[in-house]
């Protein structure tokens, strides 16, 4: 069924076809409802938005910036991490800079090279690890540290329903229930003074909805995929879920909605797991030494071994 006489731009899983204007209203209403339902924002925020320059982060920044214009007590800062992925991040960062310049948003860029001494590409020549694992650890580490230094009260990310669905399934497949307990529209198990709360305003929006919104609002740039993604476990879970969604529309919504019903129980089960402080860098950590410091140490050992003519792993 069509919403009106205008040409539809999307068909929702329930069958309704929406035109550009009705879909934009539908999408933005869903994001604002998510913010209210899960209490993602307080009345006053110095809000950070993690910006990669891709469609998801541009969409969340576009909507939150409009919210900020309507409500000056919500201040917006963009924060981008340059991992140093040749021919990928350099391109998306250009889009991020262009958007922030046009919309008068302060953009803070931090790089692996400046913070850790090596780009991700250089790290992957030294370490025999899965790229997304080590990249994710360093990116989350920097986002939290720099958000705190910038005195941001929360950090919004562009994670959408598809991302969450993939994470839920990946944790199930790896028997990582504690990992699932950290998921949800508000990330993490406990509040901690050194931990900047991450929030996901696009939590209930599918990837197709986000792309459609980005397209009709002029936010979609040319397709640009990280060269490390196709080999990841996540990419295989994503393809499996999309096959299911095609055969059984609504599958992804069902997975996330049923997960949301169990999430309070999971958070309760793991609430006593204290957040520690890394003995090396003093950043919040689940263990005595944080994962970022563990990988930095591995890099150091491997570099020293190579310099001395030995091979490490």
């Amino acid at each position: 069924m069509n919403c009106c006489s205008e040409k539809p731009v999307i068909q929702l899983p329930a069958g309704e076809k929406l035109c550009k204007n009705h879909f934009t209203d539908y999408f933005e209403s869903k994001v604002f409802k998510t913010i209210r339902q899960f209490e993602l924002l307080d009345k006053e925020e110095n809000l950070g938005v993690a910006l990669s320059g891709g469609k998801d982060s541009l969409t969340v920044l576009h909507i939150l910036n409009r919210l900020s214009q309507q409500n000056p007590k919500i201040k917006i800062n963009a924060i981008a991490i340059d991992e140093g992925i040749h021919n990928y991040r350099d391109k998306t960062l250009e889009k991020a800079k262009e958007f922030c310049h046009e919309n008068n948003i302060k953009l803070n860029i931090f790089s692996y090279k400046e913070e850790f001494g090596l780009t991700l590409d250089e790290m992957l020549k030294i370490l025999d690890v899965k790229p997304c694992t080590v990249c994710g650890i360093f990116r989350r580490y920097l986002l939290n540290k720099k958000s705190r230094e910038l005195k941001l009260t929360k950090l919004a990310t562009g994670h959408n329903l598809d991302d969450e669905c993939q994470s839920i399934m990946m944790n199930q497949m790896k028997n990582n229930i504690e990992g699932s307990a950290r998921l949800g529209p508000k990330v993490g198990l406990l509040q901690h003074k050194d931990f900047v709360q991450r929030i996901k305003p696009l939590y209930l929006c599918t990837e197709k909805e986000v792309t459609t919104y980005a397209f009709v609002n002029g936010l979609l740039d040319e397709f640009n995929e990280c060269p490390n993604v196709p080999q990841s476990f996540r990419a295989q879970v994503r393809d499996m879920l999309n096959d299911f969604e095609n055969k059984f529309p609504g599958t992804k919504y069902s997975i996330v909605n049923s997960f949301l019903q169990t999430l309070p129980l999971l958070k309760k089960q793991f609430k006593n797991d204290a957040i520690k402080v890394c003995v090396k860098c003093s950043e919040p950590s689940a263990n005595d030494v944080c994962n970022a410091c563990i990988y930095l140490e591995k890099l150091k050992i491997n570099i020293e071994a190579k310099e001395n003519g030995f091979t490490q792993c």
């Binding site: 891709g54 992925i85 986000v210 397709f223 995929e225 990280c226």
Partner: peptide, 8 residues
Amino acid sequence: ILSVISGG
């Protein structure tokens, strides 16, 4: 034909 897959 435009991909909706996130780039990374």
